[in-house]
Computed example of a mutant assay.
Amino acid sequence: MFKGPGLFKATRLCTANPLDVHHILSKNFSNYPRGDTFTQIFDILGDGFSNTDGEVWEFHHNTIMSLLKSPSFQSLLEDTIWNKVEKGLMPVLEYVCKEEVEVDLQDMFQRFAFDTISILLFDSDPKSISLDFPCIPCEKALSEIEEAIMHRYILPPSLWKLQKLLGIGSEKKLSNAWKINQSGSSGDPNKFLRDTLLNLVVAGRDTNSSALSWLFYLLSRNPMVEDKILEELHTQLNMKMCVNLKDFQAIDLHKLVYLHGALCEALRLFPPVPFQVKTPLQPDILPSGRRVDHKTSVILSFYSMGRMKSIWGEDCMEFKPERWVSVGEG
């Protein structure tokens, strides 16, 4: 439990207790909306699913889940990803390997994800992942928005609100970035659609790029795991040294049990969303015994929970895909 000093008397409870997390995100979900503070910090996301509660969130959840489960969307997703891998990602990777060019993997994966989500949502390919690594104002603005939002989390509310009023610091960057991405005012009848699409772009771009970046970082530090993944690829997919991406489909990927385990390990150690903040509507007692009320911001630390010996054992800090593979698999 943390209590702010002086004028900043906000109370924050940070927990990595799995029972607390389950209580807040599942068992007593309706009592833990994001709250006004969260909405203010993420005001740029408007009425999208990342920044709403209650009936609006339910509408987003049901609509998006229905879309994701649609066979036609799954087919479109598979085709879009493979086309972007073949025509965008692979040529860039082949070039940087041949020329021994140093690249920022996270930036490359962000560009790949941004192009993919743009094609899916807008039927338009910005081609941000290409040999010349072009500067796409909209894509760059997303990074500046996220940096400014992180500053809002760190700084006392009164300070970032003063920066916003004066148009200085990270708030100035946020305002400029918003102008680049904005396509209407608050009175625009298309605002709800715009907010929804912006939320999907942010979610589709950053979660995937973060997970892939950390996966390759971990593989670079664990060559034995890399060797096992390569062995599984050659064994299960009958791959040759020169792979034609059209020769195998996403339906074959269920065979890659060890690779799946490696992805799960990367997500455990470096979750794309490392924490989440909730505020109770009504006073509550968490399974851990802590009392919370509407003045308490509860921080769910997924990052910490993924590194607890009580959950994962003494080797919790090690990168071991095997912990996700059952005896009958792999």
Score class of each variant (00 low, 15 high):
285 I>V: 14
7 L>I: 15
82 W>I: 15
151 H>Q: 11
201 V>G: 02
145 I>M: 07
25 L>E: 00
104 D>G: 04
6 G>Q: 10
198 L>P: 00
49 F>M: 14
212 L>F: 00
73 F>Y: 12
8 F>P: 02
231 E>L: 03
329 E>V: 12
13 L>W: 09
317 M>N: 14
156 P>F: 07
222 N>Y: 05
184 G>T: 10
27 K>V: 11
99 E>G: 08
120 L>F: 09
17 N>V: 13
316 C>S: 13
22 H>M: 11
61 H>C: 08
207 T>W: 03
267 L>C: 05
87 K>H: 10
299 I>E: 05
112 F>E: 03
45 L>G: 00
249 Q>R: 15
3 K>I: 06
251 I>E: 07
22 H>A: 11
117 I>Y: 07
142 L>M: 05
78 E>L: 11
192 F>P: 00
226 E>H: 00
317 M>F: 15
280 P>H: 05
315 D>G: 11
324 W>Y: 10
18 P>H: 07
143 S>C: 14
227 D>I: 09
196 T>C: 11
133 F>Q: 06
254 H>V: 15
41 I>S: 06
291 R>P: 11
311 I>F: 09
115 D>V: 03
283 P>N: 08
144 E>K: 14
297 S>Y: 05
156 P>E: 02
94 E>T: 10
300 L>E: 01
6 G>L: 15
270 F>K: 00
46 G>K: 02
113 A>D: 02
214 W>S: 01
162 L>R: 01
321 P>D: 00
55 E>F: 06
308 M>E: 09
312 W>N: 03
268 R>N: 07
69 K>R: 15
104 D>S: 10
38 F>N: 01
181 N>E: 15
292 V>A: 07
300 L>Y: 04
191 K>R: 13
156 P>R: 01
241 M>F: 08
287 P>I: 11
252 D>H: 15
80 T>M: 08
211 A>F: 04
74 Q>R: 12
182 Q>Y: 11
261 G>C: 02
162 L>I: 09
38 F>E: 06
271 P>L: 10
190 N>E: 14
197 L>D: 12
95 Y>H: 14
186 S>A: 09
33 P>H: 05
26 S>N: 05
289 G>K: 01
139 E>A: 14
132 D>T: 01
103 V>L: 09
19 L>M: 12
48 G>W: 13
172 K>N: 02
324 W>G: 04
154 I>E: 07
270 F>M: 09
267 L>R: 03
10 A>I: 15
255 K>V: 08
306 G>S: 04
183 S>D: 13
112 F>R: 04
318 E>F: 12
169 G>A: 04
252 D>N: 15
196 T>G: 07
123 D>G: 00
11 T>Y: 00
53 D>R: 06
118 S>V: 10
129 I>R: 06
328 G>P: 03
75 S>E: 11
8 F>D: 10
216 F>V: 09
236 Q>A: 12
64 I>C: 09
251 I>P: 05
80 T>L: 07
178 W>P: 05
315 D>N: 13
238 N>H: 13
300 L>Q: 05
113 A>G: 01
